[in-house]
């Protein structure tokens, strides 16, 4: 059964009606599809790549084993789809993860189902805090430079470190990086000085060969040597490193984002969705997930299950965390929406 068919069967407006009729019909007409769609299948929005591998092995498969609920993944991760699902009542996925910037907008727009906190302090804007990931500075070791880049100021230093660059096409992550490059200390970043950030971005713009938009694209750019220096998600950096590419990176001034599990508002698979979010943020599965995916666990109870060998690659480990800074969407310094629009116009000129 495809997601669409399933969705048509269980549009929220008709859900209660269907539940009733399904129960009645099951005894007489045998309509296993409806019954099964309600209880034993869950659709989860996937980031693909290393994320999906870690999630399948540590969250999806064990969850299915424990509950009998089958998990299907839907990609790519799409904020617009989440919004459209609630508008149309046609659901393609029940559960997704959102970053700190998007979750505020999503919750304000009423796209997220209310959930119970799976552990103490887990809830933020109706999302259950799952794991931390970072945007870090990485480079090619075969670029032929004297010395290695240490921070974002070096990313901007095209005299000492000549070569092409890449950053994500995402204003909320790029602006703080520009301010760090301009000498603003990490603990004084927020609220952001938007004007100063754009002025600093003007300097690096001619050297940015690509503004990447997808995780796999960023890995490819670094691995194949299309750029010499890149601001990249740390999981994607390790993917290039493990593939044998001559690359290195620093945790210094890495930018931490938090990812939250959320349940799509009014989804027909509500119970299973909530059950999954609780499972995915519980200590053991989360520990396995972050260990394999190199993320930082946000449920502190997970830490006792994480082997020490995994710590060097985790943004929240005791040795790395002090070098990093966190995104602060609550005190960001402007309307992220307007700034993103401005960023887009800035890009096109």
């Amino acid at each position: 059964m495809t997601a669409k068919q399933r969705s048509m069967l269980v549009r929220p407006s008709r859900r209660r009606f269907l539940q009733g009729t399904a129960a009645a019909a099951a005894t007489t007409l045998a309509t296993p599809h409806i019954a099964r769609a309600q209880n034993t299948e869950l659709y989860i929005n996937s980031w693909g790549g290393p994320w999906l591998e870690a999630a399948t092995a540590n969250l999806f498969d064990p969850f299915t084993e424990e509950t009998g609920i089958k998990i299907n993944t839907v990609s790519p991760v799409s904020f617009a789809k989440l919004a459209q699902q609630v508008r149309t009542g046609v659901y393609e996925f029940d559960v997704t993860t959102l970053g700190g910037g998007d979750i505020v907008r999503a919750n304000e727009a009423g796209l997220l189902e209310d959930i119970e906190p799976p552990y103490e302090g887990a809830l933020f804007q109706n999302g259950a805090a799952s794991h931390a990931f970072a945007t870090k500075l990485a480079w090619r070791t075969d670029a032929g430079w004297d010395g290695t880049p240490q921070n974002w100021a070096d990313f901007w230093d095209v005299e000492r470190f000549p070569g092409s660059r890449s950053l994500q096409r995402y204003a909320a992550r790029v602006l703080p990086i520009a301010l760090l490059a301009d000498g603003v200390p990490m603990d004084e970043l927020y609220p952001l000085d938007i004007e100063r950030a754009f002025a600093k971005l003007d300097e690096i713009k001619p050297h940015i060969r690509v503004w990447w938009t997808g995780g796999s694209q960023s890995t490819q750019l670094l691995r194949d040597g299309e750029v010499d220096m890149i601001g990249i998600w740390h999981g994607r950096y390790y993917e290039a490193l493990d593939a044998g590419a001559p690359v290195a990176a620093t945790w210094n001034q890495a930018e931490i984002d938090r990812a939250y599990w959320v349940v799509a508002k009014d989804t027909p698979n509500m119970e299973a969705a909530k059950q999954f979010v609780e499972f995915a943020t519980s200590p053991k599965p989360l520990a396995g997930f972050v260990t394999q995916g190199n993320y930082g666990a946000l449920n502190p109870a997970a830490n006792e299950f994480i082997p020490d060998s995994a710590l060097p690659r985790m943004p929240t480990s005791p040795q790395n965390y002090p070098l990093t800074f966190e995104q602060d969407m609550a005190n960001w310094g402007g309307d992220p929406h307007e700034v993103s629009m401005r960023f887009d116009e800035w890009l096109a000129t």
């Binding site: 799409s78 904020f79 617009a80 919004a83 907008r105 727009a109 096409r169 940015i208 690509v210 503004w211 938009t213 694209q217 929406h337 993103s340 629009m341 887009d344 890009l347 096109a348 000129t349």
Partner: peptide, 23 residues
Amino acid sequence: VLLGSPTEQMAAGLIGHQIEQFL
């Protein structure tokens, strides 16, 4: 999007971006 330069955008790409990024 995948091969071109960042400054030259096509309308279809911008439409997608408007919806995906800004709803």
